[in-house]
Design a protein around this nucleic acid. Sequence first.
DNA 1: CGTTTGCTTGAAGTAGGTCAATGTGAGTGG
DNA 2: CCACTCACATTGACCTACTTCAAGCAAACG
Lengths: 247, 247
Amino acid sequence: MASEANKSCLVQKLSHYAELDEEAIGHLERLEREERSYDEQQDIYLGGDRRDDLHVVKKGWLYSYTDLPDGRRQIVRLHHPGDIVGFEGIAFHHATTSVRAAEPVVLCPFPKSGLDVVFESSPKLTALLFTLAVREQVIFVDLIRAMGRMSARERLAYLFLNLLAKLRITNTDMTDTCRLPLTQTEIGDVLGLSNVYVSKTISRLENDGFISRKDGNVTVLREDDLANFCDFYDRYSDMDVSWFPQS
Amino acid sequence: MASEANKSCLVQKLSHYAELDEEAIGHLERLEREERSYDEQQDIYLGGDRRDDLHVVKKGWLYSYTDLPDGRRQIVRLHHPGDIVGFEGIAFHHATTSVRAAEPVVLCPFPKSGLDVVFESSPKLTALLFTLAVREQVIFVDLIRAMGRMSARERLAYLFLNLLAKLRITNTDMTDTCRLPLTQTEIGDVLGLSNVYVSKTISRLENDGFISRKDGNVTVLREDDLANFCDFYDRYSDMDVSWFPQS
DNA sequence: CGTTTGCTTGAAGTAGGTCAATGTGAGTGG
DNA sequence: CCACTCACATTGACCTACTTCAAGCAAACG
């Protein structure tokens, strides 16, 4: 169906970790049958909503966030093409976070039951999804570590490196530059900082020659130094798939 | 095998969410065949270690933590009886965190392959474990929210409430008091605070009549007020298990 | 071409950190 | 049973990384 060039991001991402047969690929492509577009800053759903479907991200960045009663906000996860949004809906009847488009996006909604089919027919895909869920936990742990014990400078370094590592999985041609369609207020809400201090700290990182900025793109200039500086581990490139069932 | 009274904590915990048949229970009990004791402050394993087995907690509290190169430490997870420790080992060859006993503990080690058996023979148990992995993500998200956007006072309130909610699952007779076998330095390392400020903040919470302390126990005096104060959600009591396969 | 939205920069305020002294059991050895 | 120690908790004084407030600016947009 899909040409090699614009192969589904989801398939592309999952294939990075395990070889999938025709049947498994068929299952995945069926999850992306329907398409829906959303405007920049539009909420896809809100925390507390009753949820029955998940989404595959086809295009654009979005994020999951929660508001505190008094208006403080925390962004807890950035979503990129190939990600599945709304997995938490499997464990709870109601959404625990809200999801918003950071820029114009295209999503493919599919019902929870679409996953049942995957679980029942492909042990290998089940193992992979399970592994991804566990990997996600590790990424949260890294963020907790950054927010609990690192300075603003280190947290920003962590954010940039993590973005690069993640995006490289689906953009194999990517080098050290990536688009950053987030306001500084949003970046602050990811890292638990104020927009003002994000601005000051990014400027300092730039002056010190660690990164550079141009037209909403960030370039990481001294990746090794930065990784060392914030003790960064790439959680995307190698996972243990040796125990997966054959099919 | 086990009498009703000292039924396995793992079985007890999982049974809270879904009815398990004899066979499934048998699988779980097999995971707790072997027992091993550890002293207070002893490390079970260290981040970076090659890991081939997981552990069921039989007795005592332990925690997962990571050190930064310069000695700062972040505790990322508290483990209690009935928890499975080391799930992350499924996604990576090497441990991503270290695990240490907060007090004398008893663990039941079992090989990764013990899980394979579960996956292959019980779809229902697989679904449950998957759901628990997702639920764990939500709990991490709550912690990220607390660390990113809440004051020390709110974070401590969150910690106490979360502990109560979690422990009530396996201790059905528990009311509003729980043991707290952690030093204030350890509590600080959980919440991203210094030991000194933990001391000051807990004292304030006590003076204000929210909690009381006695012999290493904490009592939550005004649970509703506290929950309101830190916008707490109990993630333990109700999960969506409606979609689970029948067996 | 005015309005809005986001970035920058500076000045002033504060939550929480660090340092240091003192207190207080719990365990240990004599 | 007492002295000694050691690990923790407490408390106060001082410090700083961050926040908040506020003003000015630039780019995007109707």
